[in-house]
Nucleic acid binder design. Sequence first.
DNA 1: TGCATAGCATTGTCTAGACAAGTAGCATCG
DNA 2: CGATGCTACTTGTCTAGACAATGCTATGCA
Lengths: 254, 254
Amino acid sequence: MRRPPVARRPSPVAPPAARPGRALAPFARVREQLRTELEQGRFAPGARMPSEAELVARFGVARMTVHRALRELQAAGLVERIQGVGTFAATGPKLASTLTIRDLHDEIVGRGHRHHAIVHLQRAEAAPRAVAARLALAEGAIAFHSLIVHHDNELPLQCEDRWVNPARAPGYLGVDFTRTTPTHYLLEVAPAWEANYTVEAATASAREARLLGLERSAPCLIVTRRTVSRGMPVTLARLVHPGTRYLLQGQFRP
Amino acid sequence: MRRPPVARRPSPVAPPAARPGRALAPFARVREQLRTELEQGRFAPGARMPSEAELVARFGVARMTVHRALRELQAAGLVERIQGVGTFAATGPKLASTLTIRDLHDEIVGRGHRHHAIVHLQRAEAAPRAVAARLALAEGAIAFHSLIVHHDNELPLQCEDRWVNPARAPGYLGVDFTRTTPTHYLLEVAPAWEANYTVEAATASAREARLLGLERSAPCLIVTRRTVSRGMPVTLARLVHPGTRYLLQGQFRP
DNA sequence: TGCATAGCATTGTCTAGACAAGTAGCATCG
DNA sequence: CGATGCTACTTGTCTAGACAATGCTATGCA
């Protein structure tokens, strides 16, 4: 049942209508207008911007609408806001940026190539001291260990040496990793709620070089990843990529 | 109207949600409660979550308050929302993560070390074809070229080979880069509104290896960065780091 | 049976008003 | 002169209602 229409302030233009070529919602219109002005240097870094009240008058919308636009610009790092003081164009450099690390399987399939994995190792093993410490296990405790080489159209692209906390993924040894990737499986049984990465350039170990079909001295891009779920470490992975065949890409837009 | 504070650098903004000893705002309370339940696996990935109306009844707040909480969870990638259908726990793919690339100067100083740069080249030059294309210059056009080695406590840590679009940074050749970094200068004259990165492992060129004091075959972490401001390319940088002395670190929390 | 349509649940957004909280300037008081 | 409180301004948030847009489902009709 439709509610009976009630007197509503008439809008000069159809506001919230928006198909592909539709007009932006008012809050988005305000946001984009301010973003454009910021990009064009209309406000020097650190300079005071119009107050919410002024923007309300300028755009003819409610204060909550302006507030949302400004809140999103703040979340994007384009402005800084201080309660009781005002809104300011963000000073300072976006000196920090981000880089996306995608799952290898998705990346290969996304390129339209075929992903193919060879499992060289998948067993329970006593964890070396360094591994045990990072997985919060007792020294010498049993953990799951796998060593898998991933291929992009038959070309080896990643050597994945992984240790898994057995308490968090008891079925790990029974999974067929030629059909799914450890990453996918682990994300299913223990969603990653925290992850640490490091990226470095180095040479692979002798075994890794052999598995990847590389010279021992070939530069490799090595990603080390540790994930934590519900406060407990889940897995520790060392991902070795041939430097000539793999690179990380990132993009940044405020 | 109130006198605006003169070029005031807003001090560390205290997020209103993170004040110790103060009750969370209702929208934050709802958000955190749902985040906790998601982390504890209360909703399987892809499962339907309570509707806004149900949450309104459960928490005793207005719908806009619940809506904001859900919108922030959506922005964080924890839930997916479909107009007309409902809200769902995000399905697995935390498969993409982010890695922070910090400015080298900040990183060195942040470690409490001393940053020291040696300028090997800083002049106008005809841009090679590949560079000209990526800077949107005519082939053979003049561009600014600099080659600087950055040291962390006298240890060479980065070789920065940079091309700059002269139209966007006319004063580039006059800057003393032993006192400031090109990154800082360029962000001042042309705030980066878009950036692309690639990260790869490779060997340095002969000259780069010499400048960094490396063997020709030493693996290096090479970052290539291109920034665009107001739709026009500003700069193209190739940053070569010794693989043994430098690594990128990243952290991820939803 | 097949299809158009009405109804409903759900999310998306806007509004107007209200109060809270934080800051800065000014006037007053001791 | 300093401390104090007042006031104006700003951002932060909540509320209740309304309407828009979307997708699913059931119903009625041909």
